[in-house]
Design a binder for these strands. Structure first.
Length: 903
RNA sequence: GGGUGCUUAGCUCAGCUGGAAGAGCGUCGCCUUUACACGGCGAAGGUCGGGGGUUCGAGCCCCUCAGCACCCACCA
């Protein structure tokens, strides 16, 4: 495939269709979740391109601040160095090198997956243009009072040594202990309960509920804080829950967000007793201890003083962890930059509420609102080196100046060179630049052609896991700075899990690399891959065992198209998508089936189907066209509401079970028979080629490689040219009108064949064996259908010319298949064991009788007749008549068999 | 502590505004039929998690219980 087909032209008059890639982190390689996402995007994009839209799929990557910095720091650690050894500039340079080296890997993977992106427009969140957008927006938000700097309790990762936003913290229920400690002595003492004993060194008050009668006498007094000799006040604050613990809380404003608020309300001092590494700084015996060492040490000291009361209770409570490294997050008082999200979030909520942005599936909108409507201010400063440096400068007096560059700041504020300015050391949260992606990639704030052609984008395709991180923030920023939503629709898909429903993760060793599905991988190589560089090496044997069990032969090469079809088929509305290679294998088989069907078509046609629009189609030809139309209609509906599983199923079922199983077999009857004339053969060839060619176009968005390859061959075989299926028109259901007459006739033909086949199958009659058939009670329509379709019926049912019984003539004893009033009899003739047929008849009769009873009971209900729609009543009535006929026929046959058995 | 989703054939999942239970894989027969054994033909297999309700009619709507996931949350 040639890249030129995917290059978008901003000047094209065609209607635009735009999708921005959710930019993967430069650090890694594409995992299976990306592959899913890309498959869905690519299917949408390829279809629109075929439909003539001015299509842009823009590729790119995210600099992924913390994640990337951590990876490069780990690399350095292997060399025994830290980023501080290199210094900021050299370190950042090193990260750029990393990007240059590994960023390309992702692009290679995208090629392999068949992503039809516009390679000329690749972007990176740290590109110059995008950085410009970041600085511009920072300044505007600052000028509008929507960015501010303040001392707040923030989530702090003592390992990454940076602030984190709320959503970068994962909470888990961890086992801790709840310790009750007595503060003060005698009557004026109070017992507080805490899970964080070590922070008591920073306590500056005890708080109780204002209405708690147990403590009213203490409010306003002070108690002695053990181990410190300090006296701290007892304050009344409504935040305290009198029901919890003793109803008294220690207050540590510098190390707990709640306490910080209490401290503000009561004007309490904040005492920082731990540094940014989580090491105790309070002078005294605990100074220099890590927070987790300090806890038992402080506890022991309290015990020694007899301060610990009652037992220490095991206590499970939610603890925050850094989502990058898993370290327990430390709430920490520090000076950070924040975005005031209130007004932005309100607008972002409204855009979805009033339908300017539509979310698929719709249920997810509720989750979006929950988050957007109750959003805390966003901490955007990070104490990292890799990222967009905050465009703020300080003078000696600590005054803040914000601008896109130092020169701009100096000019704007009339600051001469004699005034020293120091730039803020921090960088921005990586999601800050991601939030601008839909327009920063188009050259904003410049009024570019791309911006006017491709913004707002058409649809955002992503997993629900980053709705909060990313989606809501893009809407916030898009609305604020472009006045437009960044995308009109959001298609949210589920997350891939392994066969057992487990999340795929390196540490579990259950990761499957999408490219290993495409190319295959041997067992040993797979094990090596899964166990390399494990954080916990002791997991290695378990991972190896599990892998050997799951993939005893390794993973076979299934090809990109099979993987893509599997992904599309998984795109249901559920949020957990279990990935199973057996399913990919199914689609690999499908591709093989398609390939072979195409081989048959090209062999059969042999250049003879070119032209000839004035073809007189036979009933089978009309039928398959009608069915094709139905399949296309289903596919179309699937695309319309982002149900690509429907699309896959519609095309899969049509291809395999209608085109291959029936039409191809029917076509052989015509093409390989001397009874058919040239016009009939031509009609069949024409239909074979036409149907397959259309089908390939329909399949192309899902299976780009095989559809292109076969399409070229089929076109060549039909003597027609065609540059590429990528730009061929996407088929429309409307071009293949339903043909009820042909459907009715073919239904009869298929029923006839299926009836005989059922007898053959159940009686184990070899396919090569031609059998005799006798028809009883054939009506005029039956005779007409039979006469017209004799060739089909004979070949596909494997029968001789049927003998038609005169009315009233005694029928031979045999196995029977029913088709309306028509009875198809296969005489015993040594083929059929009478008792087997007797059993078969009895079983069918039981089933028919059960159905009949149910329907009759329903029909007998007067309320049903009154309330049910006429078509339901009519349908039931017809079915009852059918069943009655059928039961009669079955009974008659059963009687004859019985008679035979008694002889 | 709130909230959401799931529970349909042995496994993985579809099932549209309530009107005769479906697919793929697996299983069991028969078959080297000249596109395909990565195949063809046939078959078996379900009280739609339990209980209650609304309705002429419920896999689908309501209530409730149970189990399993997940998300959000500054209660020590």
């Amino acid at each position: 495939m040639q890249a030129g087909y995917f290059t978008a032209d901003a000047d094209s008059p065609a209607p635009p269709f735009t999708i921005m890639i959710p930019p993967p982190n430069v650090t890694g390689s594409l995992h299976i979740g990306h592959a899913l996402d890309h498959t869905l995007i690519d299917a949408l994009v390829r279809r629109r391109r075929m439909q003539g839209y001015n299509t842009l799929w823009l590729p790119g990557m995210d600099h992924a601040g913390i994640a990337t910095q951590n990876v490069v720091e780990r690399e350095l650690a292997k060399e025994g160095a830290s980023r501080h050894d290199l210094g900021r500039e050299a370190f950042v340079e090193r990260v750029w090198q990393w990007k240059a080296e590994y960023g390309g890997r992702i692009l290679g993977q995208m090629r392999k997956l068949g992503d039809s992106v516009d390679w000329t427009r690749e972007r990176f969140t740290m590109d110059e243009g995008l950085s410009r957008a970041v600085q511009t927006i920072f300044k505007r938000l600052f000028d509008d009072g929507l960015i501010y700097r303040a001392d707040r309790i923030i989530n702090w990762c003592p390992r990454c040594m940076t602030a984190l936003s709320d959503i970068e913290v994962d909470h888990s229920d961890d086992e801790g202990e709840l310790v009750s400690i007595r503060y003060g002595d005698g009557d004026s003492s109070v017992v507080v309960a805490t899970t964080r004993v070590e922070t008591m060194l920073g306590d500056t008050a005890v708080a109780v509920h204002p209405d708690d009668p147990r403590y009213t006498h203490l409010v306003g007094t002070t108690v002695e804080l053990p181990l410190t000799g300090r006296h701290i006040p007892v304050v009344a604050d409504p935040h305290v829950d009198p029901e919890f613990g003793t109803g008294a809380v220690k207050v540590t404003p510098a190390h707990d967000p709640d306490d910080f608020e209490i401290g503000r309300r009561h004007d309490l001092p904040s005492l920082t007793v731990m540094d940014e590494r989580g090491v105790v700084t309070a002078s005294g015996p605990f100074e220099g201890l890590d927070r987790f060492e300090a806890r038992p040490a402080v506890l022991a000291a309290l015990r020694a003083e007899g301060r610990v009361v009652a037992e220490i209770r095991p206590y499970v409570h939610a603890v925050g962890h850094c989502d990058r490294c898993g370290t327990t997050v430390e709430p920490r008082l520090s000076l950070q930059w924040f975005v005031k999200v209130g007004p932005l979030a309100k607008a972002a909520g409204d855009a979805v509420r009033d339908g300017r942005v539509r979310i698929y599936p719709g249920q997810l909108a509720a989750r979006y609102f929950d988050w957007v409507d109750d959003m805390h201010d966003w901490c955007i400063s990070r104490q990292l080196w890799w990222g967009h440096r905050i465009p703020a400068w300080y003078d000696a007096a600590g005054r803040v100046y914000v601008g896109r560059s130092e020169a701009e700041v100096r000019a704007a504020h009339g600051l001469g060179e004699e005034i020293a300015l120091r730039r803020d050391e921090d960088v921005l949260d990586t999601w800050f630049s991601s939030a601008l992606w839909p327009f920063s990639t188009q050259g904003w704030p410049q009024p570019t052609a791309a911006m006017s052609a491709y913004y707002p984008t058409s649809v955002l395709v992503t997993g629900f896991d980053i709705i909060f991180f990313w989606v809501a923030r893009m809407i916030m920023m898009g609305l604020k700075f472009t006045g437009e939503v960044p995308f009109r629709e959001i298609y949210v898909h589920g997350l891939i899990r392994d066969h057992d429903g487990q999340k795929m993760s390196k540490s579990k060793g259950n990761v499957i690399d999408p490219l290993d599905i495409v190319d295959g991988i041997g067992l040993e190589a797979l094990i090596a891959k899964r166990t390399a560089g494990l954080m916990q090496p002791q997991m290695k044997p378990a991972i190896e065992r599990a892998t050997r069990k799951q993939f005893p032969q390794g993973i076979a090469a299934f090809g990109t198209d099979a993987l893509r079809m599997c992904f599309a088929s998984l795109a249901t509305q559920s949020r957990d998508l279990r990935f199973d290679t057996a399913r990919v294998e199914g689609y690999r088989n499908f591709c093989n089936k398609l390939w072979n069907a195409a081989r048959y078509v090209t062999i059969s046609v042999d250049g003879a189907a070119a032209g000839g629009d004035a073809v007189e189609l036979g009933v089978a030809d009309r039928w398959i066209r009608s069915r094709l139309g139905a399949a296309l209609a289903r596919a179309q509906a699937g695309f319309a509401d982002y149900r690509l599983d429907t699309v896959v199923n519609a095309l899969y079922e049509f291809t395999w079970h209608e085109f291959c199983d029936w039409y191809v077999e029917l076509s052989k009857t015509v093409l390989q028979s001397d009874d058919s004339n040239a016009a009939q053969k031509h009609a069949v060839r024409h239909t074979l080629v036409g149907t397959l060619e259309t089908l390939l176009r329909a399949l192309h968005p899902l299976a780009p490689f095989i559809s292109e390859e076969i399409w070229q061959r089929v076109r060549a075989a039909a003597g027609a040219a065609g540059e590429t299926v990528m730009l061929a028109p996407y088929p429309q259901a409307a071009d293949f009108a339903a043909d009820p007459e042909a459907e009715r006739e073919m239904a009869w033909v298929r029923q006839f064949i299926l009836g005989v086949r059922q007898i053959r199958g159940e009686m184990d009659i070899a396919p090569s064996r031609k059998i005799d058939v006798v028809l009883q009670d054939a009506g005029a329509a039956d005779l007409a259908f039979l006469a017209r379709n004799m060739g089909f019926v004979r070949r596909l049912a494997g029968i001789e010319v049927p003998r038609i019984l005169e009315p009233g003539r005694p029928a031979p004893v045999g196995a029977v298949a029913l088709l309306g009033s028509l009875q198809i009899l296969v005489p015993m003739a040594g083929l059929i064991e009478p008792s087997a047929e007797k059993e078969r008849l009895a079983k069918r009769q039981r089933k028919a009788e059960t159905d009949l009873q149910k329907l009759q009971a329903k029909a007998a209900n007067a309320d049903f007749a009154r309330n049910a729609p006429a078509e339901v009543v009519a349908r039931d009535r017809a079915r009852i008549a059918e069943l009655q006929t059928e039961i009669g026929q079955l009974q008659a046959q059963a009687a004859r068999i019985r008679a035979l058995l008694q002889q």
